[in-house]
Design a protein around this nucleic acid. Sequence first.
DNA 1: GTCTATAAGTCGATAGAC
DNA 2: GTCTATCGACTTATAGAC
Lengths: 180, 180
Amino acid sequence: MSRPPLAKEKIIDAYVSMLCEEGERAATMEATAARAGVSKGGLLYHFASKELLAQGAIDGLLRTHEEDLQHMGSAPEGPASYFVRTSTVIGGELDRYFLAVLRLAQGGHEPSVKALEDVQEGWLNLIQLEVKDKYAAEAIMLIGEGLYYQTSMPGSWSTGTFGKDLDHLLKQVERLKNGN
Amino acid sequence: MSRPPLAKEKIIDAYVSMLCEEGERAATMEATAARAGVSKGGLLYHFASKELLAQGAIDGLLRTHEEDLQHMGSAPEGPASYFVRTSTVIGGELDRYFLAVLRLAQGGHEPSVKALEDVQEGWLNLIQLEVKDKYAAEAIMLIGEGLYYQTSMPGSWSTGTFGKDLDHLLKQVERLKNGN
DNA sequence: GTCTATAAGTCGATAGAC
DNA sequence: GTCTATCGACTTATAGAC
């Protein structure tokens, strides 16, 4: 896990951080290089184009997403509650990659849109294993996505209206889980 | 309502359309001028900076949002269902302004983030008049925002997974509205 | 009011020294 | 591997003709 040259990881980390904290427009190759502590030419040795840099962020998302599905599938509270609960907690490795790729997707980057669709499908499949009512499962998915919509607002890292009411929100999820 | 010079409206309309259809990055002043049928210099006579152009889009959002609150408050189905239902219907004047300002906000534009917070607060207040349970109202808001999260994906204009299941989704909203 | 021309700066990417 | 230097394209904004 720590074999590849250190510089590559530092660059991806800097790129993802800039996407999360300052948006896609600010995440230029020059700014990324400066934050990673290398020169622009040094960055381009490891990532020959901006497209390859974006692909690096997508790879990180898919890798951490697979790990997350393991945790979600074996969570004592069940996949649905696990999903909604972790939708509000920003700061983990998966969240950082997710938000970074979300920013790329919202900027029109097609491979990022595709990656997010795959991630979303993985979540929905697990939730539907627990919540048999298809439309209740979809409503729960939308609540989680609504929370991501909020955290995707620049400057509002985990300061959303709903973060502090998480326990009450999970009760609403319980009501959706238990059919009429 | 139709007093101000026609060119200004054409320019705002072109700017909003480009934000919606091709994203923030493509909505340059040059491209906006071309789409509005004026030259770059002609555009800058009406909007002296890109910031003022963005403010024009925000003004359009706040104006149409006030009109929407009237409809939402007097909707026979109630504000909550009206809100979720109209979250999936893209194409109206408000939706265009909302999506345009959302793109600006996601690009890090602070005045747009502030405007969206105000719009969101207006919606939540109306929903809470109907749905007394505060947390049920918040869950309904999140479902609507989850739908907006999907429509905010470039290239997926109203082709989301949930658009065709709207009737079933509204039944889930009904369950949240009627307390336990 | 609307245009052309251009200034001034930034972006991604290349070339070549060390 | 990492750097400096620089190119060509693009973006916002200004100046001034009509």
